[in-house]
Structures are given as C-alpha cells and as structure tokens.
Design a binder for these strands. Structure first.
Lengths: 135, 135
DNA sequence: CCTTGACCCTCCAGTGACTGGAAGCCCCAT
DNA sequence: ATGGGGCTTCCAGTCACTGGAGGGTCAAGG
C-alpha cells in the first residue's frame, strides 16, 4: 500500500504519516523504487494514532498507548492512568477557556460596537482585572 | 525602570518582555550601559498585553488591540469585532474539548483499571469510533 | 581595590505537531 | 516523448515563548 492510499484510508495527510515515521511511530517497508510500502497492520496503527490524536492525546501518550495496544500482557490500569491524566488536563483546559469566555462575553456584551471610541473592552484591558488573579 | 522591575510589576517574565520588544510591541529606550530603560507608559502597555494574553488573544490580536488602545479616534466596533471573533474561537475550542472529555470520561468510566489486559479504551481506539465523524 | 552575587545583555536552539514548498525521481497513458 | 500525478528528501516556518551559554555591569562588603 502506498502512502496515498493509507492517507485516504486513515484520514491522515501523507505529510503527517511521513512525520510519524520520522519520529518512529511506524516503520513501513520500502519498495525497490524507494516508495513506502505499508502493511495492513501499519495502516491500523496509523488509524489508531489518528483516533488517539482526535481525543487530544499527545504524541508521547500515543506512543505509550500504541505500545500497550500491541502488548497482549498489558494491564488495563496502565491505559486507564494515561487516559485519566489526559482527561484531567482536558478538564483544566476547559475551565481555563470557560473563564476566558465568561470574561470576554461580558465585555463584548457591554461594548456598544459603534463608531465612538468609548470601549469597555479596552478599558478593562487597560486596568487591573476586577477580581483576584490566579497565582 | 529596568526590566526586572517591569517584570515584577507586570507579572511578565523578563524573557517575554524582551521577546515583545523583538517583535516590536514595545520600544524601550536604552541606558548608556545598554540596559533597557522602560517608561511608565511602556510598563502600562506591557500590563495591557499581559491581560490580553490571559484572555487568550493572539499576539497579532494584541498588536491590533494595542494600536486601538493608543488611538483616541478608534471606533469601539473595531475592538468589538476582534473580541467577538476571538470569543467565537474560544467557544469552538470549548466545544471540541467537551466532546473529547465526554468520549474520554465514558471510556475511563468503563475501564476496570486492573492488571488484566482487557481495556475498552484501547478497544475503542483500535476500531472506528461508534458514531459519525465530523468532516 | 577586589570580590561576590545579582542583575543585565545578546545570540542560538528547542518546544509540539505538524505544514508548505522546492527540487527531483517514478510510473502510466497518450 | 510528453504530460500529469504520485512519490521521495530536505529545509524552513508556524506560535509564543523558554532555556542556556557566554559575557558585561553594578552595588555592597571586606
């Protein structure tokens, strides 16, 4: 299977697949003409990686998850630990963004948005934020 | 004012302040010894930038907001447009993360997390996701 | 006067995960 | 043989810093 077909079947761009080879996530064989020759198993690995990435796992997490996936003697606790950790990070990020959203949406709501210069958004950015700052 | 004091008063690391000078966001004077000499106004600009960044505005957004802040003839509509745009991006990001969180938390909930290899998380990553995929 | 330590300077490289582009083979159909 | 698409490698750029090397400057204490 050439890279183009793998790209189509996994939904990953060829560039990304080459990059994943560069960093050692997959090791496709080569045809005599130098083209990468992917086996089915490699295709499945790449699809696995694509799905793990859409769940926001880092490449290093993906590497570890892939190793566990391939290890029939794994303990599900190891997988779960990675996922739980990542989940906590996602939740933290969501909270951060929600804070930004709340502040911003208030400011946007209060801004007239006309041709006058008076603007609560700039006013707020130009002075201390009203409440406490997180350390 | 030396960079250290500015750093302390704005909460921005010295490295970041130097970087902001590099990319032309501030233009401090120099003492005869080569040290940056910040005026109050520069300090305020940097504080403004720090606050805009904590709201997640990109550097380019910050550059534009700063220009509007300095322009007493601005139209608040211009500020509002930038903020609204950014708000929409934040909201999109939140939705993405919430989707990840929902999928992940289900998987984590369903995974025993013991020493056996059976694991719904890996099972899910190894096969198509259950429902539709967004284009 | 000398040393010590805290500051400050510049420049270079690395982060994460790609992405774009140039320059150049390879293969197949016309 | 020519044209177009697919494949290859390598280099550079993205974003917003951050770390570190290697060195100058300043104020205080001995």
């Amino acid at each position: 299977m050439n890279i183009g077909e793998v790209a189509e079947r996994t939904g990953l761009p060829p560039k990304t697949i080459r990059y994943y080879e560069d960093i050692g996530l997959v090791k496709p064989l080569r045809d005599s003409n130098g083209y990468r020759a992917f086996r089915e198993s490699e295709m499945h690995k790449l699809a696995f990686l694509g799905r793990a990435r859409t769940l926001g796992f880092s490449i290093e997490d993906c590497r570890n998850l892939l190793a566990l996936w391939e290890d029939s003697n794994r303990a599900s606790a190891d997988v779960r630990a990675i996922a739980k950790d990542h989940l906590a990070q996602i939740e933290a990020k969501i909270r951060d963004l929600q804070e930004m959203r709340d502040t911003l949406s208030t400011l946007v709501r209060d801004c007239a948005g006309d041709d006058r210069p008076d603007c609560p958004i700039l006013k707020s950015l130009g002075t201390e934020f009203g409440s406490e700052r997180r350390s």
